[in-house]
Every structure is written in C-alpha cells, then in structure tokens.
Design a protein around this nucleic acid. Structure first.
Lengths: 240, 240
DNA sequence: CGACACCTTGAAGAGGTTCAAGAAATGTGG
DNA sequence: CCACATTTCTTGAACCTCTTCAAGGTGTCG
C-alpha cells in the first residue's frame, strides 16, 4: 500500500522530547520503541488520512507541515488546524473508529505511524506514556478552546495577529527564528482557519505592513513588532 | 470544603450507559465503583471549577446543566460548550494540571467526582475503561471541530439552526422531546457560544418564528419544522 | 410590588464579503 | 531553459450581514 516505509526507533529520535514523555527508565524506553511501526512519507498535496477512512494509528510528524480540514457535502470547508514537526495528528479518529477530517501535507513530510492499539497496550504498562497520551488529547482540546475564542470574539486583525504569534512561537520552540517565518499555506487556507475570506487576509497583511508591524513578501513574513501584535490580540477596546 | 457530598456506586446508576463503557464483567463493574469518590451538588450560578484552579478530577454530570467558558483578562468571554446529564467535563485540566476554563451551573446540578489519578489507575487494569476515556476525549475534539466549522463558515441563521438541532438531538437521546426544549441559557450565552451578539440571536429567533419554523416563548422553544432547520444548516447557496 | 435581569425591536453604522481585474509567483512541457 | 498556463496574491468598489446604540417591554424573584 505505502511503499515509502522504514523501520525506526523512538529512543534516539531527536524529536522525542516533543512527542514523547521524558524521564523514562531504559526499560520503558525499550517498550516505547515498539510504538512506532513504521515511518511513512507523504508528498506535498497528498493526504495522510481522509474523512471516513478507518482509524488505525496516530501519527507523529517528523518533518513537514500539515493542515487538517473538515469538508462537508454541502461545500463548506474548514481548516481545523496546522501541524508541524513533533505534533501528533489523528486523534479525531478514536471516537468512531474512523477519521472525521482530512490531513493534507502542505510540504513533503514524513510521519511516524503509531498503531493505536499498540499505544493503548503500552499505555497500560507504562504510566508515563498513559499520562502523556492524556495530556496530548487535553492539549488539543485546550487549543481548540483558543480557536473558538478567536473565531467567536476577535476581529480580523486580531485573528491574524494571534495566528502569526502562535506560528512563530511554535516554530521558535523548534529552534527557528522568533521573528521570521515562511507560511506553508495559502491565504485561502489561513482564511479558512481564521473564519475570513482570503481577500480579508491579504488586506489585513497589507495593513500590518503599512503600520510597520511586519514585512511580507508572499509567504515570507518577518515580524518587526511583536509587542504591537500582542497588544492587538489582548486588545480590550472592543470588548465589554 | 464541599459539605454537599454523598458516597455512591456507578454499577447501578441509571446514567451509566451514557458516561461509562458498556458490556463489562461483574468484576470490572466492581472496579468501576471505585472511580467515583463522591457526588457534589452545585447550585445554579455557582462554579464547579474555575480557570487556574488545580485539576484533580473529571466530573460526570448526573443532573443539571452547565456551560464552560473562557474569560480572558482583557474582557473577552467565550462560551465553549453547554453540557447536560451524562456528559463529562474537566478534560481541559489534564494538560497543565490546572483548569483552563470555568464550568458554571446554569441550573441546580449534581455531579459525580472522579479523581483523575484513580481513572488512570483503573484504566491500566480495565481495557474497556481505558478505551472509553480515549473515546470521550476524542469525541470532545471532534465536537469542537464542528464548532469551528460553525464559527468559521456559517451565517447567523445557520448557526442558530445548528445549535437548536444539536440541543434537541442530545435531549432526545436522554428521553426528552424531539421538538420541544427549554433553554437553560440566556440569549447572551447562546450568542457567545455562536459568535453572535445577543440582539442577533434574538432577531434570528424572531425570524424563525415569522417563517413558522419554531415557536418561541422566552426560553420555551418548540421546533415546528426540523427539516427546514436542517436545510438551513446544510445550505449550499452561500458556499463555493 | 418594585427592582433587576432578560428579551425584543428599530435605526444607523462598521467590518467583512463579494465581484472583478490585474499582477506576481509557480509549475509544466516542449 | 524559456514560454505559457495556472495558481496565488493584491487591490478597488459596491454591497450585505451583523453590530452598536437606544428604548421599551416582559418576566422573575425577593
């Protein structure tokens, strides 16, 4: 099915601290290596899984960048998140044993395939892994609360500012610049995630540039004034 | 601390099939009874937990109705969900060992307090419970995806229609009417959840009444035309 | 019964969308 | 490697939905 697969081990993966629990005994670490069945490469534009597909595994992103999106029959389309190296995707599939959204690679990517029954099996023996899995799911719930706050109460500028700050913050945690980033997604995908039309995203970028808060050359963004963006997000002037 | 507490057992709770896994052996059922430490009553308007509070337990709602909401320092306030009997709240607290939102009772309520370390302990022994916990968290993630779709791509009428249909559907699953319901929340709370102002919620209700889709007397709502509401939600005319 | 919270409705206004056109970047095939 | 097709991005102008502000009505609870 997927010819692009390689056997691997977690215990000496350089991303381990991002996607796995820390402070394990050697014994537990050995158990952990049984977690990842194989790796899988996903070409840009291809899907890792799609809505309706049988759920078998969670995926830890090793390299590359994904979006997850919900497409309904009637043509609505909502990007529910963007995921980068060290993050886990596929959690949506557990409840009904099938995925309820699409995961699309926005650049060539490689993931670790972790069969979920194996995760549950090892979780029953390794407390730290069990708690880690719970934390990952809880983190996703809290993240989505934040998106609801964004979609429910912020104006366009505030949304885009929050989006940019969130992206650089996550990239910075991975060793990239605090102020510079390359957007892996189109204006339309940003818009879908933020509940805005692509034109509004574009206009808002232009506004930020005019005001000297960022430099934008297509998908290259340099943040010139983090504080100003942060102030936008924390703005009290539009709320009761 | 909480004087209103009573010792109880899950195994013969009439809500068990809503919040607990089914098809357990008698032995497993006995283990399950260790799950609920106590029950706790929460008066209307009081909080079950608040943002920043130390996380210790998940709560299964026995009776009553809650909202969870996110209030930021700068005055933003977002209702992230409404919860009714048989539903589990508190999942947000796992990731950082403290709650990240407030849970407020919208009517007098009673919950089963399930200390999370005990949940994890028993999960390691009872496979069905382990998987059940995973499903509950995954379900919450998927539910929030749906809210993101709503907030990101629907217009006011569509949002309110989706909201009403979701509520009656859940109430119906609990043995209540398919067409009649009493709203436990204010227009403002509905608006916060749906990303609308209370006036817009009120106007949209009035519009539905004019069009003969529902009857509304304050918080009493009778749905006269479910299909019409459903068609609104599935409307293709405003999407690409 | 009076105070307070909640709801409804109107009118004006703002923010975002839609439609449209053109420019810039990207990818493809010869 | 260049020319062309395609995708992506930007910007303008008109329009529309929802918000804001305001006033009055309804319901509820001590």
């Amino acid at each position: 099915m997927h010819p692009e697969v390689i056997k691997v081990a977690c215990s000496n993966c350089n991303l381990r601290e991002l996607c796995m629990p820390v402070g394990l005994s050697d014994q537990d670490l050995t158990r952990l290596d049984e977690l990842v069945a194989v790796r899988r490469k996903v070409k840009r534009g291809d899907t890792l899984f799609t809505n309706g597909e049988k759920f078998t595994s969670l995926y830890a992103i090793r390299t590359g960048f994904f979006k997850t999106c919900l497409a309904t029959e009637d043509g609505r389309d909502q990007v529910t998140g963007f995921q980068m190296a060290g993050e886990i995707i596929g959690l949506d599939g557990i409840v009904n044993d099938q995925h309820s959204c699409d995961a699309v690679a926005l650049e060539d990517a490689e993931v670790c395939v972790m069969p979920f029954d194996r995760i549950e099996e090892i979780s029953r023996e390794v407390k730290a892994l069990q708690h880690h899995v719970h934390k990952i799911m809880s983190r996703e719930i809290v993240r989505e609360h934040g998106v609801m706050l964004l979609l429910g109460s912020m104006r366009a500028e505030e949304r885009l500012a929050a989006f940019l700050l969130n992206l650089v913050q996550r990239l910075h945690a991975r060793g990239f610049s605090q102020s510079e980033l390359i957007l892996r997604m189109t204006r339309e995908e940003i818009g879908s995630y933020l509940g805005l039309k692509l034109e509004t995203v574009s206009r808002t970028f232009s506004k930020f540039v005019e005001e000297g808060m960022v430099e934008v050359k297509q998908r290259h963004v340099r943040i010139l004034n983090t504080d100003a963006l942060q102030r936008l997000v924390n703005n009290t002037s539009h709320c009761e």
